[in-house]
Amino acid sequence: MPSIETHGLTKRYGNDVVAVDDLDLTVESGEVFGFLGPNGAGKSTTINMLLDFVRPTAGESRVLGHDPQTNPRAIRERTGVLPEATGFYDGDTARDHLQFATAMKRTTDDPDALLERVGLADAADRPVSGFSKGMRQRLGLAIALVGSPDLLILDEPLGGLDPSGARLLREVVRNERDRGAAVFFSSHIMDQVETVCDRVGIMHDGRLVAVDTIDALHAQSATPETVSLSVETAPQGVTDQLAAISGISEATAENGSIRITCPDPAAKTDAIARLDEEGVPILDIDTEASSLEEVFLTITDDSDTAGANRV
């Protein structure tokens, strides 16, 4: 059974604003799903609908097999949630919050162990009013982990975290996946999520414009791959020969290195074969794949173009 499933999920505000448009999405149990997109793409609204914070205008969703509107408690008992812009009780300590969360979830989790896990053990008895944004994020993460949930829903969990906090978050996400939990988290910081996600979905203007593994998205991307081939010497005219190969748009030679640009990633093997034929010894190969951010920009540009064409 999928952890999250939506069909035609739509949220409109008035007649003008379509925050989420006809979203079909499936997140399988045990996978880490990155929900990506720029600010205002509809990520948080989607999560708010999954958490029953916001009611959909149309469509349906199921979380852990339950409808969020009709059975929110059943979902929240098995879900750990870190909502974006969540507030905490300023007068309460971090331990107070975790004790309340464990009481609500009817678990016997040790608040101190959870605080230790997110690096807040030293601040356990300090009122939350004195916490920095990053500390609040860590506290929210600790609360989300209460009760070893089957599903973690984290809305912009990287916001406010310093590099060590971001690394901690990635560790927690990997550990939770290894435990068997599904993790669904949103982010607009692409390079931070690339290393932990099994699959990503990219939202743009309320629409889901791509869903796949990161490798597959790279392959789909129109952003050309660049390959640097270190050689002892680059014979005269070899760059012209390489540039003539189908799937290669450009080839240059400089300082013992041949650099080729391949709109078609498969063309790089043809290039290597041609150099072998020419008797050019290759000392090293370095591939510069497009970043997820470039993939995202390419996809969203395509999406915009398609939208403009529809108009």
Partner: peptide
């Protein structure tokens, strides 16, 4: 204050 999201993120209706 946003604490509603904290409470409703837990098993409370």
């Amino acid at each position: 204050t946003g604490t509603l999201r904290f409470v409703l993120g837990l098993p409370a209706t």
